[in-house]
Design a binder for these strands. Structure first.
Length: 205
DNA sequence: TCAAGGATCCGCT
DNA sequence: GCGGATCCTTGAA
């Protein structure tokens, strides 16, 4: 949920990726604490926002206890309300970059980590924000549990060594029209077997 | 202080 | 399917 001058925007998170521990060689925390990744080492429920490729703000939710760097990257959101504000934000961003406005389907307004940032007006000002505070202008609210969750390897981390490159730590809601890209590996449902813990890792995503 | 490259998106071919 | 945009973060010197 985003509430600001542009209005109220609500969406359902349909795709995420998990990053866990300093040992995760695909995580920003792999170098230990730095000025940028500091929130990852803080308490769960806090936002970690970073700029990627010099252009897009990506939103993460910190998920583990203090000193255990872990976060979930919000890769895609299915717009539920406030679509006008999302479109306006997109138009503003395109104009600021000297691009002409392009058409996009409602379901695709936040279908990617960079697009989530644009559609929900996320910036470094949100870094460190408490997403569990009911009065926060950017916050999480409980939704329904998806029936089928797809898993796959994380995107854009070809630089990482195994086993991190192929850990199935990308999760997506089966059938959502708002996924960032197809996910090839149908997996367990909500009532299926629990996710297997990875050896050497203190806690699962 | 420097050089390298990235948890992406978009427009053109 | 491919390459450009664009700048911050990082490790090394």
């Amino acid at each position: 949920v985003r509430e600001d001058d542009a209005g109220r925007r609500v969406g359902r998170i349909v795709e995420v990726e998990a990053y866990l521990g300093v040992e995760d060689q695909a995580s920003h925390a792999r170098f230990g604490p730095t000025d940028r990744n500091r929130p990852m080492f803080g308490p769960a429920g806090i936002a970690y926002v970073y700029l990627v490729y010099g252009m897009y703000h990506c939103l993460n939710v910190v998920t583990e206890d203090v000193r255990v760097p872990a976060a979930v990257l919000i890769r895609a959101v299915e717009p539920l309300s406030g679509l006008g504000a999302m479109r306006a934000a997109r138009a503003d961003t395109q104009a600021a970059r000297g691009r002409r406005a392009t058409a996009i389907a409602d379901a695709r307004l936040a279908a990617g980590p960079g697009l989530v940032g644009i559609a929900f007006g996320i910036s470094r000002a949100d870094d460190g924000r408490d997403l569990c505070d009911g009065t926060s202008p950017l916050r999480l609210e409980r939704g329904e549990t998806p029936e089928i969750v797809l898993t796959g390897s994380r995107v854009g981390i070809e630089y990482a060594p195994e086993p991190w490159r192929t850990h199935p730590w990308r999760f997506a809601v089966h059938g959502s029209p708002s996924l960032s890209r197809p996910l090839p590996r149908p997996q367990r449902g909500a009532d299926g077997p629990p996710l297997r813990r990875t050896p050497g890792v203190s806690a699962g995503p």
